[in-house]
């Protein structure tokens, strides 16, 4: 008689799910730090956007969507947001392209690769405050290096009030931002380039492909996922730009370089935590939509091709 494999009430033998606590214990400190210092403030910020609170009063007053209504009806909010979008538009093109070209340059050269890589990455490791102060003196209209160099090389007609001209201030701050940020893009692209098989480049060389053909038909397509990451990173930093602009222009002259984080900072300085957190929440939602939308678009494009 065939022996029954199991009888009622008896557990069936086979693979069983076993919860090993060790990995969770290892990641617990990181998760706790993330929850307390990242997630917690985000949730608190969203919560406070519905209350009138000045950091001091033990009581708060529920205001519903009033702060959002005020923010969305404030011309200065839209002015600041517009500047963030200009910054974003430039940031996904210029520092990213610079990072790519410099990464390819460093990848291609035979000698001095380490020196170039270190020199070009150097600005990225400086504090943003230091960078801003350096650029403040570079841009000084009559004691600064930039105008002095332009004068010295016979281009005096191109000297400008780099930070004092409302038409230029935002773009001048963007140059300082680019100087500080292209190094990150470059290092990430460089890491991506090293993952591309050299066989592909060798085959292209045998087929007679020139530099530009290799760049557009091999390098850029092979760095598809790296591009997604680098551009997403630019979305975060461009929409959250603060330090460089705050030190260089304070958002001026006459709001010409104002961005959302400076707008929020001005509200916090007034202890209007409700308005400040509402503006910050709107900005955060925009960043989430932009970055998620971009990532999804790239995934869809990758899948459809």
């Amino acid at each position: 008689m065939a022996q029954a494999l199991s009888s009622p009430g008896q557990r069936r033998p086979g693979p069983r799910f076993r919860l090993d606590p060790m990995p969770y214990l290892f990641i617990l400190p990181a998760v706790l730090i993330y929850v307390v210092f990242n997630l917690g403030p985000v949730v608190a910020s969203f919560f406070f956007s519905f209350f009138k609170w000045d950091l001091l009063s033990p009581t708060t007053e529920f205001t519903g969507f009033d702060h959002y209504t005020f923010i969305l009806n404030d011309d200065r909010f839209w002015n600041a947001l517009g500047h963030n979008f200009i910054f974003l538009g430039l940031a996904v093109v210029i520092p990213v392209s610079m990072g790519l070209f410099l990464a390819v340059f460093i990848y291609e050269i035979r000698r001095g690769r380490v020196v170039f890589r270190a020199a070009l990455f150097l600005p990225a490791i400086f504090s943003g405050v230091v960078i801003a102060y350096v650029w403040k003196w570079i841009y000084h209209s009559f004691a600064g290096v930039l105008n002095a160099v332009l004068e010295a090389v016979g281009l005096g007609a191109f000297t400008q009030l780099w930070l004092g001209d409302p038409n230029l201030a935002l773009y001048s701050t963007f140059v300082a931002y680019t100087w500080a940020s292209f190094g990150y893009s470059m290092v990430i692209f460089l890491a991506g380039l090293q993952d591309i098989s050299t066989d592909i480049f060798d085959a292209a060389r045998v087929d007679g492909a020139n530099f530009w053909q290799k760049l557009f038909y091999i390098t850029i397509p092979c760095l598809y996922d790296v591009f997604t990451f680098v551009i997403t990173l630019r979305i975060f930093t461009a929409m959250g730009v603060f330090g460089v602009i705050y030190i260089l222009t304070g958002g001026g002259p006459f709001y010409a370089s104002d961005v959302i984080d400076i707008y929020v900072f001005r509200m916090i300085g007034n202890f209007e935590m409700g308005w400040a957190t509402a503006a910050a929440t709107v900005n955060a939602v925009i960043v989430v939509i932009l970055s998620t939308g971009f990532i999804k678009y790239r995934e869809w494009r990758s899948w459809s091709s």
Binding site: F142, L161, G164, P166, P253
Partner: peptide, 10 residues
Amino acid sequence: PDPLGIDYDQ
């Protein structure tokens, strides 16, 4: 010149 481009210390 440039009163909007330089700060108090400068």
